[in-house]
Amino acid sequence: MIEIRQVARSFGRRRALDGVTATFGQGKIIGLAGENGSGKSTLLKIMAGVMGADSGEVLLKGQPVTRRSAGRQIAYMADADLYYPYFTTDELLRFQQSQYPDFSMEKALEAAEFLNIDRKTRLKNLSKGNRGRAKIVATLGREANVYLLDEPFSGLDPMVRESIVKGLIRFTDPERQTVIMSTHELHDVAPLLDEIAVLKNGRIAAHDAVEDIRVAQPGGLSAYMRTLYEKGREPVGKPN
């Protein structure tokens, strides 16, 4: 279980996060939604321990997340292409193995096969879609408690998005692993999600179970997002 308590963070005079409080249960797949600049990436970075908060804290199973503790329990996948472009996927996986004790080469190779990745080609020579797949394989290769994925589907075509959705279902274990991902492609991803948390003006504007939204909100998730952004509203249900 991951708990975020009153997390705030500013960049210069701009307040990116203004007291975010939320609890994400173990084994859930959670979508973090919100407009550009709503603080999704900042929140993920702070949860991953790669960025500090100005105030507030993030707890994983009751313990504060630090850069050190995060490296052992949290697998973070950044939005940007962080990896060396001249690495092949094989080299990328060996690099991950050298960095993370929880990395399983067996699982990574199985995921690479499942997603049809050419492991011998340099990342820079892969298509954007295949690079996206390689990134997710490098991340899922870790047996982490929590996966934090920043826009894993961004800019990828529907076929690639679908294969990544399937990879996520296939290679995470809802008994013990939590997945939190920021995403714009809510429509494609909705069947994958247990819960959705919406950031607005640096705060959590709503946090609901997706199946509850389908019952309570005529028009479903897209109508839910629209109402939320137009008026500001009361949540329709409570995540369990």
Partner: peptide, 16 residues
């Protein structure tokens, strides 16, 4: 459950 979840593209908790 897992196989069917992957096929349908839905969360394994939902399929469970």
């Amino acid at each position: 459950v897992r196989e069917y979840a992957v096929e349908a593209g839905v969360n394994a908790n939902t399929m469970q």
